[in-house]
Computed example of a mutant assay.
Amino acid sequence: MKKKAFVAIISASMLASMGTGALAATKLKEIKAYLNPEVRVQVDGTYVDLRDVKGNAIAPITYNGANYFPIRSISDALDIAVDYNETTKTIILGEKVDGVSIVDGFKDMYYTKDSAKTTYKGKDYKEAYFNDGSGNRSSNFMLYPNKEHQTLYLQIAAVNGDITELTIQDSDTNTILKKIDVIKAEEGLVTVQVDIAGVKSLYIHGNVKGDTAVFVPLTTSYYK
């Protein structure tokens, strides 16, 4: 989804969620717009009928050459969770985590948004570290908590084999903070909890053999 369209959808959703009293207290400007039932939506090549929470069909609002939809109808069509935090006035898309997702600023050659690689046991995590190299090798990546968090909750799964000697260490001091001898494929998605108080950067590495892949869902792994 293009950024401009995404922003437009969020704006329309926020407008729709405010009551008359809330509108009066804001600096929102009244506009003239039109319902446009001729506009249709396709998702992965298939037309979808957008509906509100009560099941009513939705027509987009056309304003200044842009089409605005309630964000919940779009999130339902894309199968993405959506919520609204009234206190912080924040629309939350995707998984909610009680912390800060490690996906922000994550960089690695095995970072991916390819749904074929971000999907694990039928669930698409949208963004992941997926090391599917070949042969016996080390699987490793960096994280940067920048001394701002106390704990890392890292979700990780071994695919088609085992991960051995998984080690999480302070890369500045080479201090080993956590070591797990083996994570077996049959264990599924494992959450590794690590004390990272005062740590600026982390080096995570483990060993795999043959066709074994390492899966880390970045959207549900987080700092706290």
Rank of each mutant, 00 (worst) to 15 (best):
N85S: 02
S17M: 02
V192E: 10
N36K: 08
A66V: 10
K107G: 00
G133V: 01
H149W: 13
G198Q: 04
T212D: 07
V103E: 01
K200L: 12
D83R: 06
V190Y: 06
L23A: 04
Q169E: 06
S134K: 03
I31L: 09
N64K: 01
G45S: 10
Q42P: 03
Y84H: 12
M18H: 12
M142V: 05
I204T: 12
D44W: 11
K179D: 14
G161R: 13
I31R: 08
T118I: 09
L35A: 04
T167A: 11
V41W: 14
Y63W: 03
K2I: 15
M1R: 04
G161I: 10
A5Y: 02
I204W: 03
G188T: 10
T26W: 11
D195V: 14
T164G: 00
A12H: 13
I163A: 02
F215E: 07
A59E: 07
N64T: 05
I91N: 11
R72K: 04
Y129V: 10
V190E: 01
D49V: 15
E187L: 12
Q169R: 07
I80R: 13
D104S: 11
A158K: 11
N160L: 15
G122D: 15
L28Y: 09
V159K: 08
I80L: 14
L78K: 06
M1P: 00
M14S: 12
T167E: 14
D44S: 05
K224Y: 06
A8D: 14
K113C: 05
Y125M: 06
D114T: 07
L189M: 01
N85D: 13
T46E: 13
L35R: 00
H205E: 09
E86D: 02
K54H: 05
I31W: 11
V97N: 00
P37C: 01
S17R: 13
Y120R: 10
Y120Q: 05
K29I: 13
I80E: 08
I176S: 01
S171R: 15
D104Q: 03
I176N: 04
I80G: 09
D132N: 06
K126F: 06
Y144W: 05
